[in-house]
């Protein structure tokens, strides 16, 4: 195990790995954003991920979410945990197959360093951000807003309002004629993951 650890992170900064291994990150929603975020954070060496999502994997998810044909029908958090464990034994994964509510929010995510909002519906995003910022105003939360469509890399940006960060183009809603596509969803997801890793280094766990 120790040899594997040294090999796995052989071309990584050991100081960074130490910090990331000591970090706990929550991911609210493991669809297109959350499944991509979880994979990048696992490869980076985050010590523990808390995943929450009530959905099961469907055929239509495979166009952009990090699941496989033989996982259709499984709870997403369980399927994602399997995929993450196939990547690395150095990230512990706690799966919660639950819809997040103001009531269960602190039970699920109370012990994390950073929360990543990767939910689908705007009203759910609002519920999570409002309640999280009220409960834990000092903890970072990284959300996404405006991910649909193709191309337009130049419109995707990060906005910071205190401890709240939002990544996306701020305009592209999923509606008739505008669809979430694999590449653009993964770009936003990995910008969220990239910012999370950077903030953890600044925090220096």
């Amino acid at each position: 195990m120790n040899d594997l650890f040294n090999d796995f992170f052989a071309n990584q900064n050991p100081e960074y790995i130490k910090i990331w291994q000591n970090s706990v990150v929550g991911i609210a929603g493991v669809g297109g954003l959350g499944s991509n975020i979880a994979i990048s954070l696992t490869r980076a060496g985050i010590g523990k991920l808390i995943l929450a999502d009530p959905d099961t994997v469907s055929n239509s998810n495979l166009s952009r979410q990090q699941y496989f044909l033989n996982q259709v029908g499984l709870p997403k958090v369980a399927a994602l945990k399997d995929n993450l464990m196939n990547i690395s034994p150095f990230t512990l994964v706690n799966p919660y197959p639950l819809k997040i509510t103001p009531v269960n929010l602190s039970m699920i995510f109370g012990k994390i360093d950073i929360l990543i909002e990767a939910l689908d519906d705007a009203d759910q995003k609002q519920m999570l951000i409002e309640n999280w910022q009220e409960l834990y105003p000092e903890k970072y939360i990284i959300g996404a807003s405006g991910i649909a469509g193709v191309g337009k890399n130049e419109l995707i940006h990060t906005e910071q309002i205190g401890t709240l960060f939002l990544i996306g183009d701020g305009i592209s809603e999923i509606e008739d004629g505008v669809y979430p596509t694999a590449a653009r969803v993964a770009v936003v997801a990995n910008m969220q993951a990239n910012l999370c890793l950077e903030l953890l280094l600044q925090k220096g766990n």
Partner: peptide, 10 residues
């Protein structure tokens, strides 16, 4: 005052 626009998609 900051007004932050949230858009569906995740």
């Amino acid at each position: 005052v900051k007004v932050i626009h949230l858009i569906s998609g995740g």
